[in-house]
Amino acid sequence: MTAAVAEPRATEEPLLKVRGLDKHFGPVQALYHVDLDLPSGQVTALCGDNGAGKSVLTKCIAGIYPADHGEVFWEGRQVHVRSARDASRLGIETVYQDLALADNLDIVQNMFLGRERLRLGLLDEDSMERAAGETLASLRVTTVRSVRQPVASLSGGQRQSVAVAKAVMWNSKLVIMDEPTAALGVVQTRQVLDLIKRLRDRGLAVMVISHNLTDVFEVADRIAVLYLGRLVVQDKASAFDLQTVVQYMTTGGTSGTNGARTKES
């Protein structure tokens, strides 16, 4: 993780660059020629109405779906992400909306699931517990009573924190979060937004998919809007206000500057 800390905003080349991405499912064109930049040290919010293609784009980046056309550049080099394994090898981790935690396992077991440390062929619980505790502490997730608590006993915000900690433990450079605050109350939402800011401050690239524009404006450095499979706009968050984002999300443009900031079409 130390590698990504230096000079978060200084890099010219974005960490991840998507160019001309197409994806269709049978006759349905889910993504048209999407161009997207995800720079290090910044939170990029991906907005769009239901069915705009947010999840498909996420899954294409995370290696769950193969794209039909288009190029993906990682740290300036072209890469082909064919599986979730490929994605994690590059340093891309996704926190899905359902979090993918096993309720019956405790926090340590969940954080190391599939990547357990062994000693003499048996699970090295001590070392895993220590590492999980350190990662949680480094993210200042202090609300959990014990790392040996089963996930079933955690609140929604704590679960989200565990899922994020699980994602950043593996020297990840890009964390994609699908609706991280959708199911949370006010205080839990605050915890998660703070966590997202901490990831950014560590120099990670963060992509947040959200319907909640209040949260988006609070946490995002950049905003990208998808409309019916097209990426209609992406820019610094300060270039938008709530009204214009809603307009892009619902009509694909603004009445005044119709398509002016759109890089495609």
Partner: peptide, 27 residues
């Protein structure tokens, strides 16, 4: 020992708790 102390056992519990999480963890 197999169920509590080995990777295999851990995966058995993970699948019993949440097969989708286990699948996404690369199991």
């Amino acid at each position: 020992v197999l169920l509590q102390r080995t990777k295999y056992g851990r995966y058995v519990y993970a699948i019993g708790g949440n097969p989708e999480a286990a699948r996404r963890a690369g199991i």
